[in-house]
């Protein structure tokens, strides 16, 4: 099994130094930190598990639900998470993320990923600025063109913003296995840092072309819909975990599904979405312990295909 180190030296020292001050109050000093993977274009390491916000963070003005999402974010950060992903297409999700960051305090190492989603290229900057205000942050780390909408118009803007220090990374997204041909073309021809796409135990088309291309071109990969919006997990939970799941330190189907994704060498980060603190901890646990090697990954996929 490939065993990704759980503790970088810097994080270990930081944790040890902070433990007396924060540990008892926040209850996470003993937690194992999630494994990370480097963003190819910069070498910056990000945890293998992030946090998505599609549907789960769109709770409108509901104060109780907003507070609950803030607790999900708190648990995510306490478990070592950094990358949160959203979009103007996600209703009130950006605003709810901003509410959570204000309530629990914005971590210094937050990795804020958002999207531009508007057909008018001229309106892209205004939309990104509105998104930034909703998050309540000085700048986004990553800005992606959502579902490749008007990408020809938006990418030059994003590259200019990156050059001006208004962004750190530029990316494109797709989901549900759509427009892979266009995506491959952009990956081959544009100096993007990230792609976001759908990949999970059953949606594996990207293994053929996009994931190898990402490795070849040095592009980081964010994986959305790791649980097929929950339907994959609901289906898997009708069955028992195979006994050999313990060989990769899996204690749940969610971890099984996530470990399959993040153990692909081209994947930088998976972004499961959840409304529950226990689930976010469980998800983060997928980035700890032993990870499947190639043979184990094949075994996992074959097992699920037979269910």
């Amino acid at each position: 099994m490939a065993n990704i180190p759980d503790l970088t030296r810097r994080r270990l020292l930081g944790t040890i130094a902070a433990a007396p001050l924060l540990g008892s109050a926040m209850g996470w000093a003993q937690q194992v930190r999630p494994a990370t993977r480097a963003i190819p274009s910069s070498g910056e390491a990000v945890p293998l598990i992030g946090l998505g916000s599609w549907i789960t963070f769109n709770v409108g003005h509901d104060r109780v639900a907003r507070d609950a999402r803030a607790e999900v974010m708190r648990a995510f950060f306490q478990a070592g998470g950094r990358l949160i992903d959203s979009s103007p297409m996600y209703g009130s999700a950006q605003e709810v993320i901003g509410y959570g960051l204000k309530k629990i305090g914005r971590p210094a190492d937050l990795f804020a990923a958002d999207k531009v989603w508007i057909s008018d290229g001229e309106a892209g900057r205004a939309q990104m600025e509105a998104s930034r205000r909703l998050w309540g942050i000085p700048r986004f780390d990553l800005m992606q063109v959502h579902n490749l909408l008007a990408w020809q118009a938006h990418l030059p803007t994003l590259f200019a913003m990156k050059a001006a220090g208004q962004l750190r990374y530029v990316g494109i997204t797709t989901s549900h296995g759509r427009r892979h041909g266009d995506m491959a073309q952009i990956m081959a021809g544009q100096p993007i840092d990230f792609v976001q796409l759908t990949y999970n135990l059953v949606d594996r088309e990207v293994e053929q072309r996009l994931l190898p291309l990402a490795r070849e071109r040095g592009i980081a990969v964010i994986v959305n819909r790791p649980f097929q919006q929950g339907s994959l997990i609901r289906r898997l939970e009708r069955h028992s975990l195979p006994p050999w799941a313990t060989e990769i330190d899996c204690s749940s189907w969610a971890q099984f599904a996530l470990k399959f994704i993040i153990s692909h060498p081209a994947v930088t980060c998976a972004i499961p979405a959840t409304t529950r603190v226990d689930h976010v901890r469980e998800n983060m646990g997928a980035a700890t312990g032993r990870q499947p090697d190639q043979a184990m990954r094949a075994r996992m996929a074959a097992f699920v295909a037979r269910l």
């Binding site: 599609w54 549907i55 789960t56 769109n58 709770v59 409108g60 509901d62 639900a65 297409m89 996600y90 209703g91 989603w117 579902n147 490749l148 909408l149 549900h176 759509r178 427009r179 919006q229 409304t275």
Partner: peptide
């Protein structure tokens, strides 16, 4: 949204039943 006609109804739902 690009290729919106290829999305199913459930893909377009942007909130949960609980919400």
């Amino acid at each position: 949204m690009s290729e919106w006609w290829t999305y199913g109804l459930r893909d377009l739902l942007m909130f949960s039943a609980q919400t």
